[in-house]
Simulated assay, not measured.
Amino acid sequence: MLRGARAFNTLCRRAGATRILRRTAPSSPRPVLPHPRSFASVAQTQTATPATATASESPLPEIKAADLPIVSSDAKQVAVGWDTRTWSRFHNIWLRDHCRCSRCFHSITKQRLLNTFQIPADIAPLKVSAKPEGLEVVWNTTDSHTSLYPWSWLEVNSYDPPLTRDANKTEKVLWGSKIQQAPPTVAYEEVMAGDAGLYKWLSNIDRFGFSFVSGVPPTPEATEELSERIGFIRETQYGRFWDFTSDLAKGDTAYTTIALGAHTDNTYFLFHLLEHTGGTGGATLLVDGFYAASILKELNPEAYRLLSEVPIPAHAAGEPTSFYRPTPASGYPVLGHDNLTRDLTQVRWNNDDRSVMSHLEAGSVEKW
């Protein structure tokens, strides 16, 4: 398994008579069971965030009057002085567009109500004031519209310059083989008992790219229930929830005893090995793609650049009645980066499912 999108990816090596729990799809709405990698009971899930406001929309504490920032404005922007050295500047059009009053922003749905295209091009403050609860701006509109921006909200969303963006990031832990001594793990009972256990599980995935759940009962029902702690289970070309063994019931090497190399694949799946008796193999390989990429970037910047720029077409064509490929069909580079920060955010590596590299320029073939 290769960590790529910092989610749970899985690879398994199998041989011999490895036995995986299997049953046919029922006629009722109940899902058929698991998928790939000599693991059974695989559930595909979509991570769901708690039904609470985001950090930038959460209730924010007031600042004492003695500690109020200094504010000033001109025809183009409003300046907020947090201290004698730290200032944030906000364009007038940006502030008006992000008004948090009940007419412009729905406090329950967290959705915008303001039509951006109705904001006058010459929008400017008539008055700016530092209030204990935030920055108050009275605009030069016919109704003298008044906006109030909580101080903490302004600080979190400051863009000129950014102030707290890095502080809000989750620490990503890069790891090598020593992680096997104490891999990130949370107990099944803890996850099922409440949101604190679920948060611990998801935090492990966010920080390390994977997490084990120990003590899960070896049944499809328990696996499905565990999956639904994260979110609803989505349909895939393999089904919604299913089991399998190495019988080539599907046109995928996951349904064989062939060993699979490290790859990023099905990063949204949850795998549970239910039975492994009378067989050999079935070992799981875990690799931190982010760690590997960090080493490559240091030792061979040119190779890192190529893997960041050359798109890789891919396909799944083992079933005679179906054909899957990415959109766009040209695919995506192995290494994906944030458009703003240029931080590495994804590692897509699956050499087995790679399509023909017919789009390479002649001078790049050997380098790639």
Rank of each mutant, 00 (worst) to 15 (best):
T24D: 12
F117Y: 13
P69S: 08
H263Y: 05
T264G: 03
E361D: 12
Y332E: 13
L163I: 06
T284R: 02
G194K: 10
D67C: 08
K64A: 15
A53M: 10
T253G: 01
L296W: 02
L285N: 04
K76T: 13
R37K: 10
A5F: 12
K76H: 11
V191N: 07
A40E: 07
A187S: 13
P26F: 03
I119L: 06
V32R: 11
R100E: 08
A262E: 11
V334E: 01
T142W: 06
I179C: 05
T164N: 11
T109L: 10
D265T: 11
F90D: 00
V137D: 04
Y159G: 03
P161C: 10
L340A: 12
K200R: 15
L11H: 05
I119M: 06
F212Q: 06
P59Q: 03
R13A: 10
S88E: 04
K250A: 13
T49E: 15
G239H: 03
I108N: 06
S144M: 08
D338R: 02
S203N: 14
D83T: 07
L335I: 14
F39W: 05
L21N: 07
R14N: 09
D252A: 10
Q118E: 15
F90A: 00
E221L: 10
R165P: 00
L296V: 09
S147R: 00
S211F: 01
L306C: 02
P183K: 01
N115K: 15
G251H: 06
P50G: 05
P31E: 02
W242L: 08
T223F: 03
A193E: 12
R89Q: 09
A43T: 05
W87Y: 13
A259D: 14
L198E: 01
V128E: 11
Y255Q: 03
W153L: 09
P26A: 02
E298H: 15
A329W: 11
L248M: 15
T327W: 11
S294T: 06
T267G: 15
V365I: 14
T109R: 07
G336W: 00
H35A: 12
G134Q: 01
E189T: 14
R85Q: 14
V42L: 09
L274I: 05
